Computed example of a mutant assay.
Amino acid sequence: MSRVRIFTDSTCDLSEELLQRFQIEVVPLYVIFEEQSYQDRVNINAQQLFDFVTHTGKLPKTAAPAPIDFEKAFAPFIEAGEDIVYIGLSSELSSTIQNAAIAAGSFPDGRILVIDSRNLSTGIGVLVVKAAQAALEGRNQAEIKAIIEPVIGKIEVSFIIDTLDYLHKGGRCSSVQAFIGSLLKIRPIVTVIGGAMQLTDKVRGKREKALNQLLQNALAFKDEMDTDFMFITHAQAHEEAAYVKQQFELHTNVKNVFLTETGCVVSSHCGPHTVGIVFAKK
């Protein structure tokens, strides 16, 4: 039986420690500042992205890896006799999945399985870690697929966004919406539904109020949570993320609550001081 190697892309927002622990390979997306192109998590990080936006007032563009990028990443493992399961960014948000599938077609049939996470950030990460656990246990592609596909629709991902500036710069809310939101101190909560980001709550007032709303929304599912692990994912919000982690450790039976930081792609959409809660339901 061939060993299975798990691949994902840089939007998974998994920490380097988790990537190494579970032997997960990452194909980076691109971040483009004016004419200069960088690879997410390779030669640019979220702090550098925020510095660029502060300095220029503009958002960088992001781009999916090309099929040739996937081919180059996959080839050494295929040549070493390993099969591959790739789990990537929602096809509703990017052409990343399509390009991975194109690349998979360049290899012998059945060697590479491409799974659309229908999610982003550590919503992908939950699926990737579960797949990697199964791979390390010696499961084959078909067995991993049977484990992962039923979980896709059970992932809950919600973020509190501290500022509407990044959504405005990215064309996801109007100037009027951004102005009114800033004036009224409205802090949106964004949830992944059907593979895309949707605004589900608008909390007016202090940041602590919005953070507690996000927390209570998630804790409403505490009896339905998969207790193996969950993620608290953030962008430059270390204290708040640590507080949310503590609350889940106090009020749920989840064995491992992992803290992770967003990469450039998610950061470019949500901005600094974002906090997200990500878990799977049973």
Results as ranks from 00 to 15, higher is better:
Met1His: 06
Val4Ile: 14
Asp9Trp: 03
Asp9Asn: 05
Ser10Tyr: 05
Thr11Met: 10
Leu14His: 10
Arg21Pro: 02
Arg21Met: 12
Gln23Ala: 13
Glu25Leu: 03
Glu25Ala: 11
Leu29Cys: 05
Leu29Val: 01
Gln39Ile: 01
Asp40His: 07
Ala46Trp: 05
Gln48Ile: 08
Leu49Met: 13
Phe50Trp: 07
Phe52Met: 05
His55Gly: 03
Thr56Val: 09
Thr56Trp: 04
Gly57Tyr: 04
Lys58Trp: 05
Leu59Arg: 07
Ile68Lys: 10
Ile68Gln: 12
Lys72Thr: 15
Ala73Trp: 05
Phe74Pro: 03
Phe74Ile: 10
Ala75Pro: 03
Glu82Asn: 10
Ile84Trp: 00
Ile87Phe: 02
Gly88His: 05
Glu92Ile: 00
Ser95Arg: 05
Gln98Cys: 01
Gln98Lys: 10
Asp109Pro: 14
Gly110Asp: 07
Gly110Lys: 02
Leu113Trp: 02
Leu120Arg: 04
Ser121Tyr: 03
Ser121Met: 11
Thr122Lys: 03
Ala131Cys: 04
Ala134Trp: 02
Ala135Thr: 06
Arg139Ser: 14
Gln141Leu: 15
Ile144Pro: 01
Lys145Asn: 11
Ile152Asp: 02
Val157Gln: 06
Phe159Thr: 01
Phe159His: 08
Leu164Gly: 03
Gly170Tyr: 08
Arg172Cys: 03
Ala178Met: 13
Ile180Thr: 12
Leu183Met: 14
Ile186Leu: 12
Ile193Thr: 13
Gly194His: 06
Gly195Leu: 09
Ala196Trp: 01
Ala196Gly: 09
Asp201Cys: 02
Gly205Lys: 06
Glu208Lys: 13
Glu208Asp: 13
Leu215His: 02
Phe221Ser: 10
Asp228Thr: 09
Thr233Ser: 14
Thr233Lys: 00
His234Gly: 03
His234Ala: 08
Ala237Gly: 09
Ala237His: 05
Gln246Trp: 06
Val254Ala: 08
Lys255Tyr: 11
Asn256Cys: 03
Val257Gly: 12
Leu259Trp: 08
Gly263Glu: 09
His269Pro: 00
Phe279Pro: 04
Lys281Asn: 09
